[in-house]
Nucleic acid binder design. Structure first.
Lengths: 258, 258
DNA sequence: TTCAGTCTGTCCACTTGTGCACACAAGGTT
DNA sequence: AACCTTGTGTGCACAAGTGGACAGACTGAA
């Protein structure tokens, strides 16, 4: 093993994905030969319902993926966001099952990819590797559970604020979310005109500004005040479940979104 | 191995849970020594948020468990139903993580129980056993995804009809669901008076009758007509993912509920 | 049999959210 | 500069759902 490969296993040189960075040197070494990092543009579909799941995608840096549930009217309903804190594709199913949801790149950027079969083989060889992925799977589950509850009882205003905060935390962008009102409405499963109205009221209160095709956040705390607490509940679970799995962990888990 | 133990491994003598019955003789033999069947009454809490998950519970026969997400106001929101088609506790997390949701026995009856550690040990020894559980985990995930979408876009009327159908399919009871309006409302996360009104409108249309503390279904197809299609979408996924895993499978998967 | 506690049906005022319509604004292209 | 497409702000009529209130009905226990 020469110096170059050894360097590739060090945490700092890994893709900017918390799940991959969380792994021990030994565990990451099992995966490293199979990891490919590529850029993927926004709106690219990673999976459609019924697709064979053969690749796990790890959003890196500001990349963001979402799970969409198709609906009888053809409208997709967005459910959860996955950013650099996690991964999509075969996390729970362990691959090779038909995908149930659509998975879409919401904000483009780099994704690390690993063949599911390779990942499963590595899990066979390392219990601690399996452990990390099982823990993340549980966090993802928590996220969806929270989302289900959130959709049942929280107002559109709360959910709008929640979504904007969650997107910002993941992309790391301090102020801007590239989204039209139409897109925001669709992804919350609500009417466009009402979504516009909510943004309008946020603007009137000085919480954000609206530009054509994007939202500029002016007062993050104000937004937090108007959001439900679903993000925080999920973030807490991420911290409890994943904290200290490996002490080499970086600072912020940067989790959340219910 | 004497005749008695060999008999205990045959499908007909196993607990009335599809997941356990789906296993090959060899796989079930790995679990059989650790399976305990007990009755549990309605409203018993199997897990509370934060609990250590150490036991997997398999609802048998008409038993029914539900996942509840606690809310800031103290109101729990019900998410998905699990009956004899599945199991609860450590299915995705593989155990030993703090539970995120509350898990409650909705309709009492027999539950088969296995220690998570024993189940995991058996999975280590048998890939096909692991495979069945991974496939079920994926189905459960599909169920929650569908539920999230359903809560986002379907009306209370549709969701009420859906819930009643799902409960009936699981218990096998042809006509009656033991539930007060209050309970139904709480579990859908809606106001009691509106839930009453919906049931009233169903009654006026001859779809069901209401008794104090229970709902009597008169016209199942009428109810289906008024429900969203979430149940069917999930049921289809159950069939695709679990069908033919072992050909010894019994007839109806009896799945569903989005 | 009576009583208390719970469940049910319904009323009402009110908030939230829908769906459509339409005028106007912002940009990108030619 | 004129044009076209897409996005935005807002008005309106209406539907869906809330939350409180209250009378009456059912049921179990004393």
């Amino acid at each position: 093993m020469d110096a170059r490969i050894s360097k590739a296993n060090e945490v700092d040189s890994r893709p900017a994905n918390n799940l991959l960075r969380r792994l021990s040197q030994a565990d990451y070494a099992l995966l490293a030969p199979h990891v490919i990092v590529e850029n993927t543009a926004a709106n690219h579909l990673l999976y459609n319902p019924g697709d064979d799941v053969q690749i796990v995608h790890f959003p890196c840096g500001p990349s963001l993926a979402t799970f969409l549930v198709p609906n009888e009217d053809g409208r997709d309903v967005e459910t959860i966001l996955v950013g650099r804190e996690g991964a999509v594709g075969g996390i729970v199913s362990e691959g090779f099952l038909p995908a149930y949801t659509r998975i879409c790149v919401k904000f483009g950027g780099p994704f690390a990819r690993i063949n599911v079969a390779k990942l499963e083989a590595a899990k066979q060889r390392s219990l601690s590797l399996r452990n990390v992925f099982a823990r993340y799977a549980d966090c993802m589950l928590a996220q969806i559970f929270q989302s289900t509850a959130c959709n049942a009882i929280h107002s559109i205003e709360q959910r709008t604020a929640k979504w904007i905060l969650a997107a910002m935390e993941r992309t790391g962008d301090e102020s801007s979310v590239p989204l039209t009102h139409e897109q925001l409405a669709t992804l919350l499963g609500v009417g466009r005109s009402y979504a516009s109205r909510v943004l309008q009221s946020f603007r009137a209160e000085g919480v954000l500004d609206t530009r054509r095709g994007s939202i500029l956040v002016r007062n993050r705390d104000g937004l937090r005040l108007r959001a439900c607490l679903c993000n925080d509940a999920v973030k807490l679970h991420f911290e409890e479940v994943l904290r200290g799995v490996y002490p080499t962990e970086e600072a912020s888990p940067n989790a959340a979104q219910g």
